[in-house]
Computed example of a mutant assay.
Amino acid sequence: GTLLLPSSTEGNGWHLRMESTPDFGKTWVMGDTISRGKQKVNAIQPSILFHKDGSIQAIGRTRNRALFSTFSKDNGKTWSDVELLDMPNNNSGTDAVTLKNGKHLLVYNHVLPPGDLAKGPRTPLNVSISDDGIHWNAALVLEDSKISQYSYPSMIQSSDGMVHIVYTWRREKLKYVKIDPSKLKVLPIKNGVWPGEEGKVVTAVKAEEE
């Protein structure tokens, strides 16, 4: 089969594209740049989700204060215009995986930047879960400290069903967390606000970096 590599460019504006290999990396095909859509979304660092209807979704980081989403119905050859989800993004990296049971798991900073800024503190670090990749439920807070930052997470699910997450801890070290997704207790995220955090403004002690 064909392996799909989600990728992006930053040198001349932020753009998404997909690359693929039919021979396990010997040769590669570079896909067209995915349209930024009517919202002119500046997006990079996509993660791939697989849906039960055969469609593929890419989701990830933007400069537009919200997570992006785009779908493919032909195994990644063509993609819909990029759109923004009703989920905040602080211009920080995310990761997402489709679990064995078909649900989708997302690890990210659930932070809406203050005012009209594109960038916000990289704390807290959160985990959300979804059935459709569009509507998300709050599942877990991995870090919640005013001492930033918790960023650039990476996540996989192993054959035993456990989820393994690695992320940068305050720019000092890497931290590893193992999660049993069957034990997550979820609450709906309404209007992009984490449950119990209505009206909260997130501030950080340490200045953010790229």
Score class of each variant (00 low, 15 high):
50 F>R: 15
49 L>F: 04
113 P>G: 10
155 M>N: 08
188 P>H: 00
94 T>P: 00
144 D>R: 15
93 G>D: 07
28 W>L: 04
46 P>V: 05
155 M>V: 15
165 I>V: 15
186 V>Q: 02
187 L>R: 00
58 A>N: 07
163 V>L: 11
176 Y>K: 13
131 D>E: 15
133 G>F: 05
100 K>I: 06
17 R>D: 01
39 Q>G: 03
64 N>A: 11
145 S>W: 06
53 D>F: 10
24 F>A: 15
60 G>K: 02
128 S>D: 07
139 A>M: 12
53 D>W: 09
23 D>Q: 03
138 A>H: 09
40 K>F: 06
176 Y>T: 14
134 I>R: 15
124 P>F: 03
106 L>E: 00
102 G>V: 06
68 F>A: 06
117 L>M: 12
57 Q>A: 07
121 P>Q: 11
25 G>T: 08
183 K>D: 04
137 N>G: 00
108 Y>V: 05
185 K>A: 03
32 D>V: 10
185 K>G: 03
98 T>H: 05
159 S>A: 13
143 E>Y: 11
157 Q>H: 11
54 G>S: 08
186 V>S: 08
48 I>V: 15
174 L>A: 12
169 W>S: 12
25 G>K: 09
25 G>M: 04
195 P>E: 00
192 G>T: 07
139 A>D: 07
115 G>K: 14
104 H>G: 07
26 K>I: 06
49 L>Q: 08
75 N>V: 00
139 A>V: 09
129 I>T: 09
84 L>K: 10
87 M>H: 07
35 S>R: 01
112 L>G: 00
81 D>H: 13
43 A>Q: 07
60 G>R: 01
79 W>R: 03
27 T>I: 04
157 Q>K: 13
167 Y>S: 01
195 P>I: 02
156 I>G: 08
3 L>Q: 10
146 K>T: 14
93 G>Y: 00
